[in-house]
Nucleic acid binder design. Structure first.
Lengths: 90, 90
DNA sequence: TCAGATTTGTTCGTATGTATT
DNA sequence: CAATACATACGAACAAATCTG
């Protein structure tokens, strides 16, 4: 992610990197920084969409990306939770 | 998949199984039956959507599912092709 | 038990961009 | 250039699971 993203937590719609990857990267950084603790829920799709100014489906794709990175576990009707044992940084 | 799906190749919108999973199952069956040969393209998203009466994104999700099952390989601008060495049936 | 709010899951529609032929 | 096809992203709607009152 860009320096701007690291600093502000905002996304760059003009970046070659897809928004959902940018968002997944931002959340992964927060998880690895400890801002989002294990077994605690991450913000809901709706909240993420609002916060970052993207569509809910884009936030969903970011969550799917994080599931594939094994950083979160999602439970329908409850939310997505930070994984207890995330793999080492890629 | 249901017996009806096996027999007709049609999908059941009222099934508890998501449409994109049903469609992926139908296509997987076709691949394993040899109706879709290795290195041959499967029908396009638009064609699948038309043929089965689903949205293109649903056909897209079926294709994504098949990619995760390592049954097809998708090449941008060309199409999705039956994998040469698919894993054994799950 | 029930109603409502919250959250994720699925589906459809549409638009724009990019790559290949 | 045009046609085809995949990638991304927006909006909208409803279903299903969960939780709370």
């Amino acid at each position: 992610m860009s320096e701007a993203e690291k600093a502000s937590g905002q996304l760059d719609p003009h970046s070659a990197t897809p928004l959902y990857i940018q968002l997944a990267n931002v959340i992964e950084a927060a998880i690895r920084a400890g801002s989002l603790a294990p077994d605690r829920p991450i913000p809901s799709e709706h909240a993420l969409a609002d916060e970052y100014g993207v569509a809910r489906l884009t936030a969903r794709r970011a969550a799917q990306e994080l599931r594939e990175r094994q950083l979160i576990v999602t439970v329908r009707g409850k939310g997505s939770f930070v994984a207890k044992n995330p793999p080492a940084q890629a």
